[in-house]
Nucleic acid binder design. Structure first.
Lengths: 258, 258
DNA sequence: TAGTGGTCTAGACCACCGA
DNA sequence: CGGTGGTCTAGACCACTAA
């Protein structure tokens, strides 16, 4: 029974506000990312692990379940827990294009083309479940990376949101600003499609007329289930795609098909 | 503190192989779906609930956490648990075009254009982590709905899979056949992009040359984390889009500011 | 058969929220 | 302040897997 070397440096800080299971999970995740825990490695069983670390079994289980949900571990009853084959890590739940680009080291830039407060358009009012005529913030931004346009982002935002100044929007992603304003994003519905570029869109995005565009519409909800934001975005298909990692839901839901 | 009427009919069967927390979760989910638990309803607190039902608090918590993950409940410390606003229910983890179309009443049809077993192509071998020359099943299917082509589906499958006869493939979705063959799909990685149609693709899909296509590549894994299938698909953008429901990952509720 | 993860219990203390 | 959910513990029994 090898003592996992990846755990040798683990110290749980019981005084920290960070939950113990989360400290363990982060430590394991880092060990996997760094390669100290190689793919296909078998972990020690829960009892031993709990004993080594000085945590109870339920706490260790919670950390492992978190990593299973995240797709880093695979567990089989009667067998054990193994590190999963490494794949491109793309959690991608509620992401922002800005953050994705920044994380990829691609130095994103934003130009605000329009930033107004106006009575909501009827079609948007219906989508956001707002009374007709409610004022909303309407934004149009051009997102570039490495000096080339990638996307035109159009957003409609509910409520009186401070901090959405044009300079701020050119420095940060919209979702980061919303979080800074105390808005908690909880869920979203997206629709991804495609079409060809009009002449005006092609000009803006420095593409040829008729070039392929990815379209993405996203309706975002806060923690109380209220619609917060609706966006209709177009992306230059030659320079952007959407990456998704999907897990079969734990519990009942059937594995998928195609 | 009203006793939730939705729980009046709840009987937990301790002899059942179905976990107790899951029995409770399903009961609550059904109550929410049927409207007996209306949106915004406040549930009794965990202790009372556990007491009423005759379960321990951790078990009740597990059922509730399951429904929170599923987006049906929202919990706030110091406040309580509420039923979330109803949204379009679209779990959509590992979805199947065939099932989506069938569920929409659109009578999907499949024509198998090619169904062969051959040594794997080098590029596919790398993606599937297979030794060079391993035989794989290669499929090309044309999926139509309402008499019009929607997508060309190209798949490469690992292993000796019985039941993938051309007639079977024209009657059922691929994932349904895999499940029938005992394959357990556990996770997938997808990439969604767009491009314009070549002349041959346009002819096959009954579109104009240069029409917008959605592209989707999907790598699917079984419950042991082994790559099982790789698909490269193209969809007529005018007739298909991808719908996604996203939830903020539970783990992101970690302490500390963003 | 021995060992694994899956489930369940009955406590406990704490951080946060609203009145 | 009282009440809520968030976390944690130390046991227990069971179902499944592999040898």
């Amino acid at each position: 029974m090898p003592v996992d070397p990846a755990l040798s440096s683990l110290v749980i800080d019981r005084a920290s506000p960070v939950p113990l299971y989360f400290q363990l999970a982060q430590h394991l995740e880092q060990a996997i990312d760094s390669g100290r825990l190689a793919p296909n490695t078998m972990l020690a069983n829960e009892i031993q692990l709990a004993d080594q670390i000085g945590l109870s079994r339920p706490t260790v289980r919670r950390a492992m379940q978190y990593l299973v949900d995240k797709g880093l571990l695979v567990r089989r009853r009667g067998v054990g827990t193994r590190v999963v084959q490494p794949r491109v890590r793309r959690p991608l739940e509620l992401t922002s294009l800005y953050d994705d680009l920044a994380a990829g080291g691609r130095s994103p830039q934003t130009r605000v083309l329009s930033n107004t407060v106006e009575p909501v358009r009827p079609d948007i009012a219906e989508i956001l479940s707002l009374p007709a005529g409610t004022p909303v913030v309407s934004l149009v931004r051009l997102r570039s990376a490495d000096g080339r346009p990638i996307a035109r982002l159009t957003n409609h935002l509910v409520g009186n949101l401070p901090g959405l100044s044009t300079p701020a929007l050119e420095q940060h992603g919209l979702y980061a600003l919303l979080r800074g304003a105390g808005v908690i994003l909880q869920a979203a519905q997206q629709s991804i499609g495609a079409r060809t570029a009009t002449a005006a869109e092609a000009r803006l995005l420095e593409e040829a007329k008729g070039a392929a565009l990815l379209t993405m519409n996203r309706l975002t909800f806060d923690e109380r289930g209220r619609a917060v934001e609706y966006g209709t975005h177009i992306y230059v298909a030659a320079r952007h795609s959407f990456e998704l990692s999907l897990l079969t839901h734990r519990g009942s839901s059937r594995p998928g098909r195609t």
